[in-house]
Simulated scan of single mutants.
Amino acid sequence: MEAYLPSHWKAGPRTGPLTSALVLCAYEQNTSEVVDNCQYVGGVSVMLTKSRTTYLLYEAKTSKLVTRFTVEGDSGCPSEIRHYEGEKPPITIAQDIDHGKVIAKLRPHVEGPAV
């Protein structure tokens, strides 16, 4: 998740010990609900399943829950799937989460309300 957050949201300062005012926990929940059947080269067929991730944002200093929200997966079949040579490809894969939606939910708590 960190790779998808804006760089100026990372813990700082840039030198010395890292400090953080907020802590984000993510809990992925993949379901068995099939939303698509993805077809790949070589006759590989993989089921795409519905996913959702619940996020809990805490104040680091007090452990107080700041907000809780859930983002549903909304992606289609990926253009490719990866697996190790000699291993069978996965039977199912979960939808990806739109990280832009996560950032939009976090922004008011990290940067303050829009002016």
Results as ranks from 00 to 15, higher is better:
residue 1 M to V: 14
residue 4 Y to C: 04
residue 5 L to Y: 05
residue 5 L to Q: 12
residue 6 P to Q: 07
residue 7 S to N: 11
residue 8 H to A: 12
residue 9 W to T: 10
residue 10 K to P: 00
residue 12 G to W: 12
residue 13 P to Y: 08
residue 14 R to H: 09
residue 14 R to F: 08
residue 15 T to M: 11
residue 15 T to I: 12
residue 16 G to Q: 09
residue 17 P to V: 11
residue 18 L to F: 04
residue 18 L to T: 10
residue 19 T to C: 10
residue 19 T to L: 13
residue 20 S to T: 12
residue 21 A to M: 06
residue 22 L to N: 07
residue 23 V to L: 12
residue 25 C to K: 15
residue 25 C to L: 12
residue 26 A to D: 13
residue 27 Y to G: 04
residue 27 Y to C: 00
residue 28 E to F: 09
residue 29 Q to Y: 08
residue 30 N to Q: 15
residue 30 N to V: 13
residue 32 S to F: 01
residue 34 V to Q: 05
residue 35 V to C: 03
residue 35 V to K: 13
residue 36 D to L: 01
residue 37 N to D: 06
residue 37 N to I: 08
residue 38 C to M: 11
residue 40 Y to M: 05
residue 41 V to Q: 08
residue 42 G to I: 10
residue 44 V to S: 01
residue 46 V to Y: 01
residue 46 V to C: 02
residue 47 M to W: 01
residue 47 M to I: 00
residue 48 L to F: 06
residue 51 S to N: 14
residue 52 R to Q: 14
residue 53 T to Y: 00
residue 54 T to E: 15
residue 55 Y to S: 05
residue 55 Y to V: 04
residue 57 L to T: 01
residue 58 Y to D: 03
residue 58 Y to W: 04
residue 61 K to D: 11
residue 62 T to W: 08
residue 66 V to K: 14
residue 66 V to E: 07
residue 69 F to G: 05
residue 70 T to W: 03
residue 72 E to T: 05
residue 72 E to Q: 14
residue 72 E to R: 09
residue 73 G to F: 09
residue 74 D to K: 11
residue 77 C to N: 04
residue 77 C to H: 03
residue 78 P to T: 10
residue 79 S to V: 09
residue 81 I to D: 05
residue 83 H to L: 01
residue 83 H to D: 04
residue 83 H to A: 02
residue 84 Y to I: 11
residue 84 Y to H: 10
residue 84 Y to C: 02
residue 85 E to M: 04
residue 85 E to W: 01
residue 86 G to C: 06
residue 86 G to A: 04
residue 86 G to V: 01
residue 88 K to H: 05
residue 88 K to G: 07
residue 89 P to F: 01
residue 89 P to V: 08
residue 91 I to D: 12
residue 92 T to M: 10
residue 93 I to H: 03
residue 93 I to T: 09
residue 94 A to R: 03
residue 95 Q to P: 06
residue 95 Q to W: 05
residue 95 Q to E: 14
residue 96 D to R: 10
residue 97 I to M: 11
residue 98 D to E: 13
residue 99 H to F: 09
residue 99 H to N: 12
residue 100 G to H: 11
residue 101 K to W: 00
residue 102 V to H: 12
residue 103 I to T: 09
residue 103 I to E: 07
residue 104 A to M: 07
residue 105 K to Q: 15
residue 105 K to P: 00
residue 105 K to F: 07
residue 105 K to W: 00
residue 105 K to C: 07
residue 106 L to I: 12
residue 107 R to D: 01
residue 107 R to S: 08
residue 110 V to G: 03
residue 111 E to Q: 09
residue 111 E to T: 07
residue 112 G to K: 00
residue 115 V to A: 06
